[in-house]
Design a protein around this nucleic acid. Sequence first.
DNA 1: CGGAATCCGGGCCGATACTG
DNA 2: CAGTATCGGCCCGGATTCCG
Lengths: 122, 122
Amino acid sequence: MPDFKDNGRTYYNPVEYAMHQIGGTWKMPILWRLNKQTMRYSELKKYLPHISHKMLTTQLRELEHNGFVTRTVFPVVPPKVEYTLTDKGRRAIPVIATIRQYGMDLMREAGIDPDEVFKRKT
Amino acid sequence: MPDFKDNGRTYYNPVEYAMHQIGGTWKMPILWRLNKQTMRYSELKKYLPHISHKMLTTQLRELEHNGFVTRTVFPVVPPKVEYTLTDKGRRAIPVIATIRQYGMDLMREAGIDPDEVFKRKT
DNA sequence: CGGAATCCGGGCCGATACTG
DNA sequence: CAGTATCGGCCCGGATTCCG
């Protein structure tokens, strides 16, 4: 496939284009979690304990910029901000589900039982 | 999901685990191309013009190490090395096809026609 | 032809501190 | 509570060189 441009950046195939929008370590876990329910910043942070404050903010900005989530600010003190999946964000969910399922298949091949890991509390 | 380890590395969810093996800029394009046919190093390089010599080598090493491709060396001069998808590699193809399809959907949403891009020669 | 080693620049990303 | 700014380490990845 020849290359094409979007937003000033050059891409060489559709996989690269998709991965640039929902790839990286954090975007899919964030979208996956927001699909379960709308959440405010601190809730999201609680469910993703290993992401840093800066990274969560940055990733949410990019997801918002690319139209995957909406950001709702409530004018109260202390601040309250909620993040919700858009239609575009919801369309990414089946793809993430596929990758997730594949990841669990790979775990089994490697001798790791996903069900067992899910059951653990720590 | 709690965390789990594989090969000394810690992962926090199946998506991260899958992406560590077939993610990055180049692994999926390489697997996708090898699924069409077994190819030697220089052929692969020709089809992925933008990857550097070093990157193609390292990515192939990692794919081999993780069991996605086999490396066959022919004892001739000049050297000839062929890369072939393993069964595990072939199992990744449907996942890549899904992401690829999704990438093309995103392109259309962004006003880019994939068919048009495919048709172009330069 | 295919690969390894080296050098090195840029950007990703974490830690910390400060703001409203 | 949520976000911004700054600093700095580390590693990804390109360019180059050398090898069988």
